[in-house]
């Protein structure tokens, strides 16, 4: 008799735990408007990344097309996987001295691990992490970017 009682208890107890589980899912099933999904392409306009979000390395330019990069190459040294190449050139300054300035700051997004070490290494805060998060391109060569805009100059007052 005790075995039978235990048997019934087992069956009913099992059913009770199943009903509890159904209660958890049922709570959400009957409130389908409480979803947590974001409709991604629609909310593209509103979607705001956090300020420290590491999307890509960018070089901010001011309105006069000037940047802060001196071409010192510290970011190139800090980069663990060679995603940054600095190509510098020599120019003659007004007082007749030779000076090396940046020609091209080449950035391979396809190789970048977004580790932020280059930004940390930069002494003049010339490069920062950008907020862009949509990096898909049709051609791999589009992932290689030149960060300094054509014709841009170094800002006044940035010391070598």
């Amino acid at each position: 008799m005790k075995a039978l009682f235990n048997y019934i208890k087992e069956v009913l107890g099992g059913f009770y735990t199943l009903l509890q589980g159904l209660g958890v899912t049922g709570k959400y099933l009957f409130t389908p408007w409480n979803y947590v999904t974001q409709s991604y392409p629609e909310n593209r306009e509103k979607l705001q990344m956090f300020e420290r979000f590491r999307g890509e390395v960018i070089m901010p330019h001011n309105e006069n097309n000037e940047h802060k990069c001196t071409g010192c190459g510290l970011c190139e040294l800090a980069c663990p996987n060679g995603s940054i190449e600095i190509i510098s050139k020599s120019i003659l300054t007004e007082d007749g001295k030779k000076k090396r300035i940046i020609d091209k700051h080449i950035y391979h997004l396809g190789m970048c691990t977004l580790c932020n070490l280059c930004v940390r290494a930069c002494p003049s805060d010339a490069i920062i992490m950008g907020q862009k998060y949509e990096h898909a391109v049709y051609n791999r060569s589009n992932l290689t970017k030149v960060l300094n805009k054509p014709g841009s100059k170094i800002m006044e007052g940035i010391k070598e």
């Binding site: 956090f50 300020e51 420290r52 590491r54 977004l114 580790c115």
Partner: peptide
């Protein structure tokens, strides 16, 4: 995580001697 160190999985938040940024 994303707000604090800018990444969701691959943080790289530690550097020898401390942290990369202060907390948000």
């Amino acid at each position: 995580f994303e707000e604090t160190c800018g990444a969701r999985m691959t943080f790289n938040y530690n550097v020898p001697g401390g942290l990369m940024f202060d907390i948000h």
